Computed example of a mutant assay.
Amino acid sequence: MAHRGRVSLAERVYAELRHDLATGTLQPTERLRAERLAQRYGVSRTPVREALARLQADGLVQRHADGLYLYRPRLDELDELFELRIVLESRGFQRIAVTGPAHPRGASAHDLLAVRAELARWREFRDDPPDPGPDLVAADERFHTELLRAAGNSALAEALTAVYERVRPVRTLDVPNAERVAAMTAEHIVIAEQVLAGDDERALRTLTAHINSSRAHVRVRAEQAIAFTKLGRAVRD
């Protein structure tokens, strides 16, 4: 019974820690010390260590010489992850071409209700812009995963979510200004409108340009974060 209780506690800490890392509650530059996390979650260090070991096995936490930190991709990995994003999201539009109105099912592959819901959400954001931060990152990820899921293959959306988990530590460091938030909002609206209009080729071009713009901004922030981390370690040494 005690063993089951300990495992259950470790599961809770794992879920809470994973959530806090994903939402930016814990900063990507913060060292993940078992003692401090145990105090944060009101547990002993044992379940915290078990949770950190699981997160490391998941690839979401990585060990450096001075301890554990949230995984942050190298610049070459970051480029590869954004390339994978384009491949996955483009596949959604390819599915539309194969299973469009001429398909025996007699309907577009897209769940247009889901696309309309995202369009309505981002039109609201246009009128009442959200504050930059983890909530905006989550809303942006939701737009892309819902658009891909609406294409009829939930496994593609799950794969995209896995990509986001690895890119998110850098994205949460990138705080966009009001101009960038407005541009992202406008691009989401255009993409959704083009999908609803059946103009999938233009929607794909708009989407690809949108992702490449995001990659450029995130890459700059990643370079700055790497330089900051190196400087911090040099000061500590």
Rank of each mutant, 00 (worst) to 15 (best):
L196D: 05
L136Q: 10
G67D: 09
L55T: 04
L60K: 05
L196K: 10
R6F: 04
S154I: 12
G100M: 01
F143H: 08
L113G: 14
A162T: 10
E118S: 06
Q27S: 15
R233C: 06
Q56Y: 00
H3G: 08
P132A: 10
V98N: 00
V115T: 07
E201I: 10
V218S: 04
A22C: 09
L55Y: 04
D237N: 15
D199T: 10
D111I: 03
S44C: 05
Q94L: 09
A197R: 11
E165I: 00
L136V: 00
A109M: 09
A203L: 10
D199M: 08
F143V: 02
G67C: 10
L156R: 02
R166T: 03
V61Q: 06
S44G: 15
D66K: 06
A34M: 07
P134R: 02
A222R: 14
L75N: 04
A197W: 08
T99M: 09
R171L: 08
A216P: 00
A34P: 04
T161C: 05
V98P: 00
D127C: 03
R72N: 03
A102M: 07
R49N: 14
T185I: 12
V61E: 07
L196R: 06
A10I: 06
P176S: 05
S44V: 07
D140V: 01
Q27N: 14
V43D: 04
A38V: 05
R33N: 12
G5H: 15
N212Q: 15
A183F: 11
G5K: 12
A186I: 03
V170S: 09
I86N: 02
V13K: 06
L196P: 07
L207C: 02
D58K: 09
D200A: 11
R236K: 15
A157W: 02
R166V: 02
L55R: 00
A216Y: 06
R221N: 08
D199F: 08
V87Y: 08
R12G: 08
R180F: 05
A227K: 09
A178H: 07
V235Q: 07
I86H: 05
A178M: 00
T161V: 12
E146D: 12
E165M: 07
S108L: 11
E141H: 15
A114V: 10
P73K: 06
V7D: 07
L55C: 08
I191L: 15
D237T: 13
L9D: 08
E30Y: 08
F143M: 06
F125V: 01
E158M: 11
K230L: 14
E80V: 01
V61A: 09
L156N: 03
V137I: 12
Q62Y: 01
V137H: 03
P176M: 09
T161I: 11
Y69Q: 06
A102V: 04
P101G: 04
A155E: 12
K230C: 03
A65Q: 13
T185V: 14
S44K: 08
A51P: 05
R12H: 13
S90Q: 10
R126S: 09
A65F: 12
E30L: 13
R36Y: 07
E35P: 00
L26R: 12
Y41I: 03
R121T: 11
A151I: 03
D135M: 11
L88N: 04
Q194M: 10
E223W: 04
L52I: 07
A234S: 13
V163Q: 05
A178G: 00
D127K: 09
A120D: 15
D128F: 11
L9R: 15
R149G: 01
A138F: 01
